[in-house]
Design a protein around this nucleic acid. Structure first.
Lengths: 146, 146
DNA sequence: ATATAATATTTAGCCGGCTAAATAAAATCT
DNA sequence: AGATTTTATTTAGCCGGCTAAATATTATAT
C-alpha cells in the first residue's frame, strides 16, 4: 500500500491555511455578531455606497445566490437595508445602516489589519513581497481554463 | 470616505485562492460523484486502513461533527462502511469499499497531482521551495494563540 | 403590438466547516 | 460495587459557497 505524503503538498497547505484563517476570522468577528466573509460584504458596500446585487457578486467574486442569502441575513441582523431601484425594478440596492457602517469601519481598522499583520509576522519586507507575488501567480495558474 | 484596498491584502489573496482551488477540485471530482474535501477523507482511510472517527478528526484537522457527517454521506454513496469496534463499543471504525478504494487510488494518482502541478505551473524549483516555506510560516503564524 | 431574448434576483437543495449540547460506553475514584 | 468523570460519537442548527431552476422585469426583434 502506497502512502502518498499529501500532507506536504501545496494544495494541502493552502486548504489548511484557509481553514485556520477562516476560524481566526470567525473568532475575531464574533464580537460584532458576524461571520467570516460577511465583513468583506460590509466593507464592499462601505466603499461602494448603495450597491446592486449584481455589482456585489462581481466585486466579491461570489455567486448571486450567495449574495442574496448573505444580504438577507445581514439585513435581518440590522447591518443593512435592501430596496428596489425605481428606474429598473429588477435591480435591488443595498445600503448600510448606522450599525453596519460602524461595524464595517471598525473591523477594517482593527480586526482586519491585525489578522493581516499576524499572517506575515516575522517576515522580512522582501519575503512579504515575494509571498504576494507567488500567491498572485498561484491564483492566475488555477484560474485558467482546462 | 476611505477606500481601503483590501483586495490586495494577503488575506484576500488566500481566501480567493482557496475558493478557486475548491471549485476546481469540485469540477474535477464531479466525475467520481465526490466533493472537494471528501477525497481527502478517502485518501486518509486508504493510507491508514480501518480508522476510527477520532483518528480521522485528528488527521483531517476537522471537527468530530464534520467527520461524522462526511462519513455518513460517503457511506450512503457506497464509498465506505462503518462499524462499531468489539473491544470498545464507543469507537466506530471506517473501512473503504471497493468503490471507495478505487476512487481514492485513482484520484490521488491523477486529479490530485494534476491540480498540484497546475498550482505551481511555470515556477522554478527555487520558487516552489520558497512558496512552500513561506506558506508553512504563514500557517504557523496564524495557528498561534492570541 | 406581440413574441422572444436577455438581465437581475430569488428559491431550493447540496457540501464542508464550526459550535454547543446530547448520548453512550469505558475508566476512575471513593 | 456505585457514583463520577473522561472519552468517542452523534445530533441539531448556523454559515459561506455552489449549481440549477424559477421569477420577474426590461430590451429586442419580427
Amino acid at each position: 500500500m502506497n502512502k502518498p505524503m499529501m500532507c506536504s503538498t501545496i494544495s494541502h497547505l493552502l486548504v489548511q491555511i484557509c481553514k485556520v484563517h477562516r476560524n481566526k476570522g470567525n473568532q475575531m468577528l464574533a464580537a460584532y455578531n458576524l461571520h467570516a466573509g460577511q465583513e468583506h460584504f460590509l466593507a464592499q458596500v462601505l466603499c461602494g455606497g448603495a450597491m446592486t446585487m449584481n455589482e456585489l457578486t462581481e466585486n466579491l467574486d461570489v455567486t448571486p445566490a450567495t449574495v442574496t442569502r448573505m444580504a438577507e441575513r445581514l439585513e435581518k441582523n440590522g447591518f443593512l437595508t435592501r430596496e428596489k431601484c425605481c428606474a429598473d425594478q429588477r435591480v435591488v440596492r443595498v445600503k448600510l445602516t448606522e450599525k453596519g457602517t460602524e461595524a464595517a469601519t471598525e473591523i477594517i481598522d482593527t480586526t482586519w489589519n491585525k489578522l493581516e499583520q499576524q499572517i506575515v509576522k516575522n517576515m522580512s519586507t522582501e519575503e512579504k513581497v515575494l509571498l504576494r507575488r507567488l500567491l498572485m501567480q498561484v491564483l492566475e495558474n488555477i484560474e485558467e481554463e482546462e
